[in-house]
Design a protein around this nucleic acid. Structure first.
Lengths: 337, 337
DNA sequence: ATGTATTTTGACAACGATATCAATGAGGTA
DNA sequence: TACCTCATTGATATCGTTGTCAAAATACAT
């Protein structure tokens, strides 16, 4: 039978309350007492009963990851980052898939949080940008950390990446390779990253004095198929660009496939660039020039600042922006010389 | 403030115990009483406090998914299948990444299960085949359902797919396309599927009177890189096969990349086949001939039979074998005529 | 009508922690 | 010594359920 506080208290010859104090690292326990209690805890292999803790103290040491049908690799990275943060602190992770369009999203999540006494949530796009949902969480004092929100509110916990800059840099890189006719595939309209990336592209084009051609700019939704379809449209048009920048790698892979089916060689006939550095970026040939986002690290940090908040630690609580890294691979042709 | 059993019992004018009986669907509650209680529950919006339930009854209505660094798409599918099963029953899902090589795997999982009062586990390969771990779970009466174990024990809960048959069928299909020189890339040695798939290949070759060539048979580990490396080796050898069957799609994609870098055209110079129908199978060009496993359905069923067991339902509890589906795409050339 | 079996119900303890608040002890001051 | 303060400790109530077991109500047989 597992040991209880009572057992420990007897063994250490103190009251159960004192043991509780030690467990919870409360102030005002004499050093000597604390040592004695800790050694009893160790000796008996005592681990607090989480249900009882949770019942009394209304917290569970569980955090939840909320997501809506994201890219699988992205989800796995996020999850892994959070999980590793949890391992350090002893928190557990439950996952909750949800439908951001559902009318009872709020109710579902509220009950989920209440029932499990979830200590806090981690939100991924597109939930990260649902203002009324975020407001609802605030109103009901449901703690949460947001991954990649579009609006960075100082008072909220979030991690973000420099999507705009990275897209600007990547576009510049394409231009520096001598390209002037550059198409763009937009991402999912509900993901804030889509707009940021598009803006990065737009501003770079403008600053280098290049003109955008609207027939080379297509709306996608981050899926392979949407990239493929966009590719088909573009390649069937009268004049095709020399390079296409897709807002993520899946769509870039879709374009690559449509190009290849169209008899176009990459990068000789058309250069491509993606975003995210998902596995597919280097699993196709030629490998994609792309931008690597430290997704796992971001998620890890999101979890850390969330949990730090529970423990009243504030030092780490600053929102943090993570830098992306440009990865130049074979899919981009140098037109100069 | 959320309503408690006490509130309901007052409202329905019964004892709290009777309310508890209704909540738990226990026998021997008069129909009339039950109705009255249910309507009070509804009226007050009562939801049982899980911490209290868990504390008293030692169950949590939580199941856990255990995995060790699998393919990301596979993980996402498994997770999604389980999650959908949970949604129907009101269970929650917590995920636990673990290291199958770790020496304190047992201890970690035991404490995890005890602390959270986890009702049951779902195991994915390679954990599905760790006999001493499974024995340990049995010994400590930790309920679990196993996805794709190699040894199908009648007394345990599992779901499996027909890897052997599917590999046999796919190999036959390759042979029927006129191929005689067929290479094979083995999967991760700790995953039982690896052996089954290899056996399917071996037996098909034998039954069609074809000889295996050991320099075309390479050990991989299901990763893209291991496929790539195997491809490099094979394509650098003096004589190359006309087709290669890789035990999964990632490795097949790896081979494809190495082939393309080697200047080989697919399927004209070399035919390829994979296994799993992961996203990459159709995101590359030419798309891979492969075998589609109903991973999500399998995981869904695993979760269902596990939860059915908790509720004493046995009807659904039969282990179930799921059938894979052959998907012929462009990566396989017909050599006949 | 009576006794017996069975169904239905409720009073109260228990699960294992934390919260409240009062009691104790140590240290300092007059 | 007597008094006060503040750190340390413990007795007991409490969180919201389910488990135990006995009482009450009902059904059934004689």
């Amino acid at each position: 039978m597992a040991a209880t506080i009572k057992d420990v208290s007897k063994d250490a010859n103190v009251s159960i309350k004192t043991v509780s104090r030690v467990i919870n690292n409360e102030a005002n326990v004499a050093e000597k007492t604390k040592k004695r209690v800790l050694s009893s805890i160790n000796k008996l292999g005592f681990r607090p009963n989480k249900s009882a803790q949770s019942l009394r103290s209304k917290r569970s040491f569980i955090i939840a990851l909320l997501y809506d049908n994201p890219n699988k690799a992205y989800l796995a990275d996020v999850q892994s980052g959070i999980f590793n943060a949890c391992k350090l602190t002893g928190y557990n992770l439950v996952i909750q898939e949800c439908d951001y369009k559902s009318s009872d999203l709020k109710k579902t999540i509220f009950e989920f949080v209440e029932d499990l006494k979830i200590d806090g949530l981690i939100l991924t796009p597109p939930l990260s940008d649902m203002d009324d949902f975020l407001e609802y969480l605030d109103k009901h004092k449901i703690e949460h950390a947001i991954i990649a929100p579009s609006i960075l509110k100082a008072e909220s916990l979030y991690v973000s990446s420099n999507d705009y800059e990275a897209a600007y840099t990547l576009t510049s890189e394409i231009i520096k390779h001598g390209h002037k006719n550059i198409g763009f595939i937009k991402g999912h309209p509900k993901h804030s990253a889509s707009e940021l990336r598009f803006n990065g592209y737009t501003d770079a084009m403008q600053n280098y004095g290049l003109k955008k051609n609207n027939s080379w700019i297509k709306q996608g939704n981050f899926s392979f198929k949407s990239g493929f379809d966009a590719g088909v449209e573009i390649f069937n048009s009268i004049k095709i660009p020399t390079a296409i920048f897709a807002s993520n790698d899946s769509m870039a892979a879709g374009i690559m496939k449509s190009a290849q089916m169209h008899g176009l060689k990459i990068p000789d006939d058309i250069s491509l660039a993606g975003f995210d550095d998902s596995p597919i970026a280097h699993q196709i040939w030629p490998a994609l020039t792309t931008v690597k986002q430290p997704v796992e690290k971001m998620a890890n940090h999101a979890a850390k600042i969330l949990m730090a908040k529970f423990d009243g630690l504030n030092e780490q609580s600053q929102p943090k922006e993570f830098k992306s890294e440009l990865i130049v691979r074979e899919s981009l042709k140098n037109l100069i010389n």
